[in-house]
Design a binder for these strands. Sequence first.
DNA 1: TATGAATGAGCGTTCATTCAT
DNA 2: CATGAATGAACGCTCATTCAT
Lengths: 200, 200, 200, 200
Amino acid sequence: MNIKSKQELKSKATKQKILNIALQLLSEKGFDQMQVNQICKLAGISVGAFYHHFSSKEDIIIETYKEVDEYFIQHVFPAVKGMAIRESIVEYIGLQAKYAADKGVELISQLYKSQIFSGNSFFISSDRALPQGLKEIVEKGQQNHQIRNDLSSNYITNQLLRYARGIIYDWCVHKGEYCLIKEMKTSIELFSCCFFKDNN
Amino acid sequence: MNIKSKQELKSKATKQKILNIALQLLSEKGFDQMQVNQICKLAGISVGAFYHHFSSKEDIIIETYKEVDEYFIQHVFPAVKGMAIRESIVEYIGLQAKYAADKGVELISQLYKSQIFSGNSFFISSDRALPQGLKEIVEKGQQNHQIRNDLSSNYITNQLLRYARGIIYDWCVHKGEYCLIKEMKTSIELFSCCFFKDNN
Amino acid sequence: MNIKSKQELKSKATKQKILNIALQLLSEKGFDQMQVNQICKLAGISVGAFYHHFSSKEDIIIETYKEVDEYFIQHVFPAVKGMAIRESIVEYIGLQAKYAADKGVELISQLYKSQIFSGNSFFISSDRALPQGLKEIVEKGQQNHQIRNDLSSNYITNQLLRYARGIIYDWCVHKGEYCLIKEMKTSIELFSCCFFKDNN
Amino acid sequence: MNIKSKQELKSKATKQKILNIALQLLSEKGFDQMQVNQICKLAGISVGAFYHHFSSKEDIIIETYKEVDEYFIQHVFPAVKGMAIRESIVEYIGLQAKYAADKGVELISQLYKSQIFSGNSFFISSDRALPQGLKEIVEKGQQNHQIRNDLSSNYITNQLLRYARGIIYDWCVHKGEYCLIKEMKTSIELFSCCFFKDNN
DNA sequence: TATGAATGAGCGTTCATTCAT
DNA sequence: CATGAATGAACGCTCATTCAT
């Protein structure tokens, strides 16, 4: 291992440390009440160092979504490969629910809350890995003639993701009182019927 | 009219005046850019008077909730009376969308934002007029054997409302870029198929 | 009982109620944090009623001292009548300590704290019943030739009271950790020697 | 001198500058009338800089405590070295009075006020330089058989300091109307008799 | 790379007191 | 005697971001 990679490793570790602490604070106090100063104090770094790793406070949120995408690329895509279309859609969105449940209702609530007024629209961007993955499944289903072709794959994907976000939002409003994963599975099974040709 | 009620009347008028101007500013400029000072200047009252009627700036948002049910009782219930089941459901939730569109994306965003962490769960209480009205329609549909009887009226109602809230949330995240009313109509028509016996 | 005295009784009761609640708040939160509004809410009266009974917020403090004087006139003066000079001085100031201990360290702390910057000087006024009573004892002692005549009765009285206040202040700083009554007794016995002719 | 210490030096200088100006204003106008804005304007810094160095306006008061012991170690200890016991006690406590008088009644009032409810008990800690110095004098006096041995040096020291604080508190309540230094001298001479064997 | 002192415009909020009713 | 809506000047404090070192 050479010097450069050592530095890189340390840099990555610092960034991850900042991110972890920031997310901790985010879920505890919310975006507005999470102060850059405090993150730095807890992470044992200087304010300058923070801005070396993140271009702005909001960048924390964006990085988090990148983490989600990473999770989907690493774990979800392989998991649904080879499944039947129906199952893979339910599983795919089910794993989105699992991710949210794992992160905890506090953090997810804060993310959904801050999304409403954030400048960036990373959350709903169709370019992200998460929607892309689902779109691919839908398109495969359309090629197989299992999924309706009178609606574009984009439309169907967005409908499904919006529905999923609606359920997660609902779960947040209910303060995580019910099992998100189970609820998501049932609801997606119900809703996805709208897009399949054989409704039974 | 005695002295006491005169005072009360004046007090109520002042409160309503503050509320009107505040909501005006809220939808024009957003919560953060809506300044207490400005509200007071426009309302022709002192800052102290504002804080006499509202315990904080955020209180403005909370007061708004109370208007929603009033709107439904006054306008929505009569409007859907006598319609066919399918139409009445679409219309009912469509009017929810209309209400949101009328109020403006800024105000609705604030409502959806503050719901996530509010102590009260106004949104999701089944006791409110809004869900009750929808439930009645669903039950009528079940009695007519148009709507599935294997799912409870409560379940179907909650599904529909949650889906609607999901779309409104999505509309907020998209900063009101698309027409909520049209989107809601199409989406509900799509989704409601899941609950009707004859899916065509 | 005629109408007038009924009214008077009610008035007195209201005033006492305000005073009790105010003192409760005073000891809990301190003078600055005790709000007139809150007092009124807790007492179930209007703000106007408060200002009917008290000319200002600070008046609460002044009334409290009047209560102290009342206590001394009612209970302390009779109690020390007939005692020997030495005993009566120790007893007199001892009862001051007892009063403080009864009221609790919180309230006394707040009183001592607010005294430092109060506009009124009721606390240290020589005209009050409390210092007058002690002065009489000292003068009696001087006439009996038990107490030094080279110092004025005023001077001795002030020295004793100041010393007593110093001890009470100390007790406050120590958060009432020691027994004020015992400490006061011992200390006054020690200090009062300075003013007696036969020091043994 | 390296970069780091340069920064540190500048930081310290700024903090000291703020402190000096704040204390100046404090004794001139009192705590409430001393405005953070004004401090900053006079110090030629931004409001943010003030809050970078002090967590609140009250923090100014707290910082002042730390100077007292320094003053005693630097000035008082040398001054009383070699004096006779009686003189040194009077002088020692007299210099405490001089310190208070020099600082001004406003500042000292603030100290005495905030002591009552402060978390730390700086005033009454026996570990500080101030009480330690007095205790040493008392112990020397006991070894010389000038001071009573039936009372512990601790007890006598505490009695004297408490008495002194009582007088300073009284001086504060009287808004510095009389000469604290003269009053302290006379009073300590009077009181200290209680602890000397030859009372004349 | 990293530090951390400095920026500074801007805002919500307080609350004893009054006085028309 | 009692009410309580209204006053309104005044102030402490925030905090993301920058940049000289």
